[in-house]
């Protein structure tokens, strides 16, 4: 029994008939072709699959696509706008906040959510906000630096280009 699901993904409406058991992460990867959202575990721990659903960071491996029906999803692919990197993406690049890059999309989206409601987070608030995201490469220090740097970037008034 398939169910029709409509989700607005990165601003584009996506409608597919899906099995109810289909996870949101597979909807994004397999049906939308957006493979930037990764799967690292089966138990809602690693956070590699983090996306924004209706503006909130969620783990797309623990949401059925049917649950997200009618919702708005932002994936890592939808973060840059008009070809310009999001300040968090820029900061991860500048601070060497990634190595293998597998956890990075989820890490960036969790950080984006943090900065949405807390523009000047402390180190402790940052580690709290990315507690649901595992990274095995960087040892996190540069990630924390990156989030702090992004906060500074976002606090500065946009330079006219």
């Amino acid at each position: 029994m398939k169910t029709s699901v409509n989700i607005r993904v990165n601003g584009t409406s996506r409608t597919h008939d899906v099995e109810p058991r289909l996870l949101l992460v597979h909807f994004l990867r397999d049906l939308c072709g957006l493979t930037g959202t990764h799967v690292g575990c089966e138990t809602t721990i690693c956070g590699a699959c983090t996306v924004l659903l209706n503006g909130q960071a969620v783990k797309a491996c623990t949401i059925l696509a049917v649950q997200a029906d009618g919702g708005e999803v932002t994936t890592i692919e939808g973060l840059a706008s008009n070809g310009r990197l999001h300040p968090v993406q820029e900061a991860f690049w500048e601070c060497h906040g990634l190595q293998c890059g597998f956890c990075t999309p989820g890490m960036i989206l969790a950080s984006v959510e943090l900065l949405q409601h807390n523009p000047r987070p402390s180190r402790e608030q940052i580690t709290h906000a990315i507690d649901g995201n595992l990274c095995r490469c960087t040892g996190y220090s540069h990630i924390i630096d990156a989030v702090q740097s992004a906060a500074k970037k976002m606090a500065r008034p946009e330079k006219a280009k």
Binding site: T44, G47, T62, E113, G132
Partner: peptide, 9 residues
């Protein structure tokens, strides 16, 4: 409870 993502859902 859990982490930010888990608490959101």
């Amino acid at each position: 409870i859990g982490d930010v993502q888990v608490r959101n859902r």
